[in-house]
Structures are given as structure tokens and as C-alpha cells.
Write a protein that binds this DNA or RNA. Structure first.
Length: 466
RNA sequence: GGAGAGGUGGCUGAGUGGUCGAAAGCGACGGUCUCGAAAACCGUUAUAGGUGUACGCCUAUCAAGGGUUCGAAUCCCUUCCUCUCCGCCA
């Protein structure tokens, strides 16, 4: 979410920021609504002050047993105007808020222009690509080993799920344990085991809602769809139903109106990443600035609908509805986030280095950087089976964009003024894809897979899978 | 799932229609005292927004949203959350 004061004070910079995102200038429209809102608010507050004064007098007069008819008439006379102003103020405030929370974050100047991952700028590269004759893809290796089963997964859950068994299941567990140990013991992250089902406002806080609902799974606590619809329809108005009968209104509109009128019941979303609960740990809090940064890590399943990626990466477990990931989240003082971003990327890189997997780090282009982010580093691991680098980690500095949505602030000791914290998140790293990378990079001609040194102690000394 | 009790400032907690943004205590901060500290005493101590050059003034906020009323922390409705007992359950 953007700061209205930033739009007021630096309208050109704001529009320039939108332009780099490929969006038209919005400041004029926003400021128009903002100034309307303020003038309505001023009039409303003046009227409220008058009303409050008159009400106070009424109270005094009545206590003394006098006749307050005149004052009551006065208040009654301003009632309509006041409620109109209150409604208008609410609408305008919502309009301004709507703009501010639906536009993406302003990017740092160094973010390279471009539209997709091919425009990303490589910043560094590590490791040598292994020389493998006729490298196989991970699913060929896994299925041949009998430890990766897509058919049975489909039987249980449909496409984009995997069943891992035996040593590959162990490898998955070992990867997560290795990553968590590294981040907690060497880099000072606090291990967290968070809820995986969260409320609307939590998804809003990290920018998943309201725009990206289609990317998520929804866990209704309620009954069947039919029951839900019936319940909502009890809020339909008689006038709407009459209009429906006369054919003046569509069923869809009647339902939509009823839904709007029905009370909001909070159902829960499945987290798309542990960033969601970890970042929100500090929502609505004022943290002691001296205790920052806070660094959290968690290994959790991640649930994604992959709505926009039909047909992409359909083979294997590269793109799944459910996968494990170790996530890193930092909550920093405003002036520390840039430094923390570099540190976080290097924590993620350390994992790949220890696993001795070749990778490169790129800075995403303007058109490819996420909604909340000011700047994003992607780590791309080498996959011999695909003969290309593929994303395995994404580290973003969100500045105060999420903090504003979550109302997460900090305050220095002795200060009265609070500031919004900065939030950063990064994969440290995606476990499913790390498993793929290990399989493809460590594959042997006989179809077995050598276990990287760093993982052996997490796999009971196992040196080779298969 | 059934029954009940609640949600008030940094914390504890009073307040059931009118000078209540809210008693009291604790905590924190400033001061007096002291060589210094403690104790004691005195004082200060919410957030957001609007408005004016300015001491300021105004508005909103007692979980959230809506309603009743001239006026709501207080009454009504809905939602969310917490706790207790029973049931079920890893």
C-alpha cells in the first residue's frame, strides 16, 4: 500500500514509478478523490462539532428540567446533511484506499527495465555445470527409481501433485532439515512453526488479497456450496426477489446483492508461502526499534492454485499445487532493509553452495518483479535435464509496502514517533525444486543419485540413492 | 457441536444513556529531595485524521461493522476473538 502523503508531495515521482511498472499515471485521479474526501470530511466534522455542542446543551437543559425543543429541532435539521456527508466520506475514503492498496510498489532505480525473466540482469554466477552424457530429467530418474509416483498422486488429488517414497521422501526431509539448521544456527533466524490456514486480513497484509485470490486455495469451514448459497440468499431483499420474478433483474444480480448484504463470515486461506504467516507475526504491533531486525524461518507446505500457468511445466514436480519450502523473513528498521536484502540473498545462496549446485543470481526486471517488492533477486539453479537455469529462490525487499497494510511499526527508545518497519522475504530455499536440482545434478549413468556431502548426516549417512 | 462468561488506554481494572477520551492502581517519563541512588512527594503520560503561520482548535476511536437516540463504552443486531464446562477428537 502506498502513502497518500507520498502521492500528495511527490506526484511526479509516483507516476514515474507506475510508468516503470507499465501503468498509466494515477496521481491526478487519486489526488482528486483525496481532496474531495478532505473537503467532505472538513464539512462533516464542523457539522459534528455543532451537533455535539447542541447535544451537550440538551443534556444540561434536561437535567435542570427545562425545555430543549429548540436545540432538538436544530439537531434534527442537520441530520440528513450529516448522514449524507458521512456516507460520502466513507465512499471517498474507500476510493482513495482502493487506489493506494491496489497499485504495485515503487521499484528501486537499479531494477532493470524489461517484461519477463529473459530481461533479468545476472549479478553473479557460481559453480560449474556438471558434464553428464544424455542427462535425464528428475521425473525420469524418480520414476525409474520407483520413488516418485505421479499416477498415484493423480489418483489421490489430480494433476500437479507428487507422491515421494523411500529415499526420495527422506531426501526431501533432509533438505528441509539442512536448510533450517543452517539458517538458525549460522544466520540467526528464529525457527517458527506457524499456522497454514489464515484469515483474509492476513492475506491482505502481505498483498495476496484482494488482487491475487485466484492464485490461492480456500478452506471453507462451512457447509456445502448449496448451504452457503441458501444462507446468503436469506439476506436477499423482497424488492430484489420481486424484480427477479418480473424479469427485471437477473438471478446473478440478486445473488450478488444478497452476498453484499450478508455478514462477512471469516473463512480461511491456505498459505501460498510461509512468508504469509511469518511476516504477519508483527502485524498491528509497535516493535522496539533496538530489537530489530527480527529474522524468522519456517519449513512449511505451500499451496498454490497455479491458475495462470495451465500447460506450463506439466511434467514432473517442478510446478505443483503443494510443495515444501523453507522461507526467510526479516523485519527491519527502515534504514536497514537494503543491507538486509543482500544478507538474505547470501543466506539463500549459501544453501546452494553447500549443496554444490551450480546457480546464478539475477535481479528481476521491472515487469517481472512482484506486486509488493521494490527489488527482487532470484536464485536460479542449473537443471541438467532441462539444460537451463530455473528459479529456486526469490528474495524481495518490500520496503514499508506490506508494513503499511499490516500496520506494523517500530519506535526508537525515547521517541514518540513511530515508523513503519520494512519487510523482506526470501526462499531459503524451495525444497521441491532443490530435490529436483540434487537429482539432476548428481545423477549417475546407472540412474542412481549421489547424496551431496552436506546432506549425508541428515540421511543417516546414506551416500547414494537407488 | 451444546451451554455459559467476557473483549475498556503499555498492563491490571472501574464505569449500564448525557460535562467519559474514559476513575483508580501499576509501569514509563520529567521534576523536588540526595554526593549519587532508593523511598517519598509533585507533575506528565493513547492513536489516527482534518484544519490554521501559530499556543491551538475540531473529529473519530472503549474488538469490528451496522442500528436505535438530540446524545452510545453503556441499549439492539451481525461478525470476529478469548475463557469456562460438557461432547467429540490427533
Amino acid at each position: 500500500m502506498h502513502d497518500i502523503r507520498f502521492v500528495r508531495e511527490q506526484a511526479e515521482a509516483f507516476d514515474e514509478g507506475l510508468k516503470r511498472r507499465g501503468l498509466p499515471p494515477m496521481s491526478a485521479e487519486i489526488l482528486k478523490a483525496d481532496s474531495e474526501r478532505r473537503s467532505v470530511q472538513t464539512e462533516m466534522q464542523e457539522l459534528q462539532a455543532k451537533r455535539n455542542e447542541a447535544s451537550k446543551q440538551i443534556g444540561e437543559i434536561k437535567r435542570k428540567g427545562g425545555n430543549a425543543d429548540e436545540q432538538m429541532k436544530l439537531v434534527a435539521a442537520m441530520k440528513d446533511r450529516l448522514s449524507a456527508l458521512e456516507t460520502a466520506e466513507k465512499e471517498l475514503a474507500a476510493k482513495v484506499q482502493g487506489y493506494l492498496c491496489s497499485l504495485p510498489n515503487i521499484l528501486f532505480p537499479e531494477v532493470p527495465p524489461g517484461v519477463d525473466d529473459s530481461d533479468a540482469k545476472e549479478v553473479r554466477r557460481f559453480g560449474e555445470q556438471p558434464k553428464i552424457a544424455a542427462p535425464k530429467e528428475h521425473y525420469e530418474l524418480g520414476e525409474a527409481l520407483g520413488m516418485m509416483d505421479f499416477e498415484r498422486a493423480a489418483k489421490l488429488s489430480g494433476a500437479r501433485f507428487t507422491v515421494l517414497q523411500g529415499q526420495l521422501a527422506l531426501l526431501e526431509r533432509a533438505l528441509g532439515n539442512f536448510m533450517l539448521d543452517t539458517h538458525t544456527q549460522e544466520f540467526g533466524y528464529l525457527e517458527v512453526s506457524p499456522p497454514l490456514l489464515v484469515k483474509d486480513e492476513i492475506m491482505f497484509g502481505v498483498g495476496q488479497l484482494p488482487k491475487f485470490a485466484d492464485d490461492m486455495f480456500f478452506a471453507g469451514r462451512t457447509k456445502s456450496r448449496e448451504d452457503l448459497l441458501r444462507e446468503a440468499l436469506t439476506y436477499a431483499e423482497a424488492a430484489d426477489i420481486d424484480a427477479l420474478k418480473k424479469g427485471e433483474m437477473s438471478l446473478a444480480d440478486v445473488v450478488a446483492n444478497a452476498m453484499n448484504r450478508a455478514p462477512v463470515k471469516e473463512d480461511l486461506w491456505l498459505v501460498t508461502t510461509a512468508e504469509v504467516p511469518l511476516t504477519n507475526l508483527v502485524n498491528n504491533e509497535i516493535l522496539e526499534k533496538e530489537k530489530l531486525p527480527l529474522r524468522f524461518t519456517a519449513r512449511t507446505p505451500c499451496f498454490r492454485s497455479e491458475a495462470g500457468s495451465a500447460g506450463k511445466d506439466t511434467r514432473g514436480m517442478l510446478r505443483q499445487h503443494q510443495f515444501y519450502k523453507v522461507e526467510l523473513v526479516s523485519i527491519t528498521a527502515p534504514e536497514k532493509s537494503v543491507e538486509e536484502h543482500e544478507r538474505m540473498a547470501s543466506c539463500a545462496e549459501t544453501i546452494l553452495k553447500r549443496l554444490e549446485l551450480p546457480f546464478r543470481t539475477v535481479m528481476l526486471a521491472t515487469g517481472d518483479t512482484g506486486f509488493c517488492s521494490k527489488k527482487t533477486y532470484d536464485l536460479e539453479v542449473w537443471l541438467p535435464g532441462q539444460n537451463r537455469y530455473r528459479e529456486i529462490s526469490s528474495c524481495s525487499n518490500c520496503g514499508d509496502f506490506q508494513a503499511r497494510r499490516m500496520n506494523a511499526r517500530c519506535r526508537a527508545a525515547g521517541d514518540k514517533q513511530t515508523e513503519f518497519v520494512h519487510t523482506l522475504n526470501g526462499s531459503g530455499i524451495a525444497i521441491g525444486r532443490a530435490l529436483i536440482a540434487v537429482m539432476e545434478n548428481y545423477q549417475q549413468p546407472d540412474g542412481s543419485i549421489v547424496v551431496p556431502n552436506a546432506l549425508r548426516k541428515y540421511m543417516n549417512g546414506l551416500e547414494r540413492i537407488g
